[in-house]
Nucleic acid binder design. Structure first.
Lengths: 144, 144
DNA sequence: GTAGATGCAAAGTATTTGCGACAAG
DNA sequence: CTTGTCGCAAATACTTTGCATCTAC
């Protein structure tokens, strides 16, 4: 396993309070991409006295410290996930909201090239694919 | 030139009021990607009685009708642009906020492939590159 | 001990909506 | 005519902030 969020905080000089430890732990254990409300709910189960203001302040701090990634998917609330060493992008199922993480090195390279073509150094990017699940049972159509 | 926004409204059965005509015209003439506030300002110059609620309602309607594209660039307000037949993505200068439109067919194809790999049909996507302008005057560094 | 963090409630920002008056087809 | 739109102000949703208190280092 890689560095824990707590370790990252120490490394970046981010003061480790009880609240931050709890939020860090909850995020670490989250396999999905919770929004602040959802995160607040999960955190509240551990310590019900933590305020939502602290959750907002903490995710912002963690994001600025490169510990969490913030995503603003189409028409939804901001969602967060732990930033890992391996970069990935997202494929969102528009019907179910399910999120699939994927890596595509070719696209990464092409993005860099596009930026360079215009005289820019790529510092960040956002790639989101929105799709609907293909029906593998084509035969069903025959009965409609 | 391609179809005007007014023509598209007729084609889609969107009722053409004076307010919508003005908003359509202002958007057509905008070469940038205005947010609602900015659009409201421009529209107000033509008819100061138009309310911002109407501007919000109209851009939403136009977006749903496939007439305008809505963008939610990092940490900013939603911005709009006229949807043209030629799809493009955006490269955003993180220092100046300048937006460069680009087309990259290779990336488009790869995106489709990624979606297919996971059993999805791509219905939409968002690709935003964030960059800083490279300094072409490398010599400057010598004097720092 | 002190700079910075927290909880609370209030304020901010962006956007949506209820409603009576009004206008397009 | 009738259905949908407009302007207005109030409401909503999400996020930030001022302030007094508390805590990690």
């Amino acid at each position: 396993m890689s560095e824990s969020i707590e370790q990252k905080c120490l490394a970046k000089g981010v003061k480790l309070t009880d609240q931050r430890k709890i939020i860090a732990k909850v995020m670490s254990e989250s396999q999905d991409h919770p929004n602040v409300d959802e995160l607040y709910k999960r955190v509240s189960k551990v310590d019900s006295k933590i305020s939502i203001a602290t959750v907002y302040r903490t995710v912002k701090l963690f994001e600025e410290s490169g510990i969490l990634a913030k995503h603003e998917f189409k028409g939804g609330k901001a969602r967060y996930e732990e930033l890992s060493e391996s970069h990935h992008d997202h494929l969102i199922d528009v019907k179910t909201g399910e999120i699939i993480e994927f890596v595509n090195e070719e696209i990464e390279i092409l993005q860099k090239k596009v930026a360079e073509k215009y005289g820019y150094e790529l510092v960040d990017h956002k790639l989101e694919l929105y799709g609907v699940k293909k029906n593998p049972n084509k035969w069903k159509k025959k009965y409609l």
